[in-house]
């Protein structure tokens, strides 16, 4: 016993077990691990297939299928996918799509977050007539199928000369990003004490000065969440890019579908999969870097009224 001398042990240790209960790996626990292991395989399978196939030469794919590990590793498919794979007669690979996506992404993300934050701020702090109605309309907008809006938007863009331009795409992303962005910031601002806002009013703050000087700097966590949400969302968009982008502004997702579309001759699966990984890379990198913030974005986007 290592107890201090001054302490008198009143009752000695008795018979039977002492110390920590022995840990045994119960069947239930083995079952849990097995379930998780199999699930992990299921979720990893597509990523595995893509990566493995993209670094195999075609002969190996022909012989061993897409699941076997490569015996020779080649990065040629990646190079080809990026810069020389053909879509019809255009043999520039998927890189033009990548740059198109970047050109669409940057202004769309900035504009949609800004408008969403501004609207959320106005709706949560300034009691204006019709605010509830506006909010309800926005909320509804988050749920409606795009197909209802698409045809008239095509006509409007054509009439205004915006069709097939980057502007049309940016505007579209602002329009359809607004509900979630507004909701996100409105809920966030709802958690900021009204007294803070009142103090700013008393100090002579106006609508825009309070927004830019006080609220926007305070919303950095939400701005990060919004950024993650919008970058992945807009990068992954297909239908808007397909409908409004025209030939010149095809985003990467649209370009990818054209690239992998069956053509005459043998399908270069390794090139196709390399192009697919590249298309998935941006949101995946965002996901891996952001970690828990990504989950927070999901929770915030989970539309809790």
């Amino acid at each position: 016993m290592t107890a201090p001398e001054t302490r008198i042990r009143s009752v000695p240790m008795g018979e039977g077990p002492s110390g920590p209960a022995p840990k045994s790996l119960s069947t239930a626990r083995i079952g849990i691990y097995a379930f998780l292991f199999i699930s992990a395989l299921f979720f990893l399978l597509p990523l595995y297939v893509m990566v493995v196939t993209s670094i195999k030469p075609m002969e190996e794919i022909r012989l061993g299928g897409i699941f076997a590990l490569p015996t020779t590793v080649t990065f040629e498919p990646w190079v080809k996918a990026w810069s020389s794979a053909c879509t019809g007669l255009d043999c520039r690979g998927i890189s033009p799509g990548f740059w198109n996506s970047v050109k669409i992404l940057v202004p769309s993300v900035i504009c949609s977050i800004f408008v969403g934050a501004l609207t959320g701020y106005a709706l949560s702090f300034w009691r204006v007539r019709g605010a509830n109605l506006l909010f309800a309309a926005l909320l509804l907008g988050a749920f409606l199928p795009y197909q209802v809006f698409i045809y008239p938007l095509v006509r409007i863009y054509s009439a205004t000369g915006l069709f097939s331009t980057i502007y049309a795409l940016v505007l579209t992303h602002v329009i359809f990003g607004l509900p979630v962005m507004t909701l996100l910031f409105r809920n966030y601002y709802a958690g900021i004490p009204v007294d803070l806002f009142k103090a700013a009013r008393v100090d002579g703050g106006r609508f825009f000065s309070i927004f830019f000087r006080l609220m926007l700097p305070m919303s950095i966590p939400m701005l990060v969440v919004a950024l993650i949400l919008q970058v992945t969302g807009i990068w992954n968009d297909f239908i808007m890019g397909l409908t409004f982008g025209g030939l010149a502004n095809r985003p990467m997702t649209v370009q990818l579908t054209n690239l992998v579309a069956p053509t005459e001759g043998e399908i270069a699966y390794n090139v196709n999969m390399a192009a697919t990984i590249m298309t998935a890379a941006v949101p995946l990198i965002v996901y891996f870097i952001s970690g828990r913030w990504f989950v927070r974005g999901i929770a915030a986007g989970a539309v809790k009224g």
Binding site: F43, P46, N236, F238, T253, L256, T279, A280, L284, Y287
Partner: peptide, 10 residues
């Protein structure tokens, strides 16, 4: 969770 970050196209 990573599949959720990937587009439907991919």
């Amino acid at each position: 969770l990573y599949p959720y970050a990937i587009s439907f196209i991919v």
